[in-house]
């Protein structure tokens, strides 16, 4: 299915064809491999389905999180420094 991933800092999006069985972790790694995202470093990234604001966990499949064709997935930067 065709999905749109938002960047945590920039306004551009990354369009990708992703299998519904793809997990959150695999999707994130794909975005890093495609150079859309920098390596996570200390903090890490989270994914959330823009339509519902619900998280897409690393081990959850996109389908199990209710992701549908044409959805937008927000990529969010999680902080870990203090």
């Amino acid at each position: 299915m065709k999905l749109y991933f938002t960047h945590p800092h920039r306004s551009d999006t990354f369009q990708a064809d992703v299998a519904p069985e793809c997990t959150g972790a695999v999707a994130l790694q794909g975005l890093i491999d495609a150079k859309f995202l920098d390596p996570p470093g200390q903090g890490g990234y989270d994914l959330a389905l823009a339509r519902t604001g619900s998280p897409i966990g690393p081990n959850a499949t996109l389908a199990s999180c209710g992701v549908q064709e044409g959805d937008t997935i927000n990529v969010l930067r999680r902080g870990s420094g203090a």
């Binding site: 903090g43 999680r78 902080g79 870990s80």
Partner: peptide, 10 residues
């Protein structure tokens, strides 16, 4: 719980 990574905070 909170944390930051440069200007990004959560």
């Amino acid at each position: 719980e909170g944390g930051f990574d440069g200007p990004d905070v959560s």
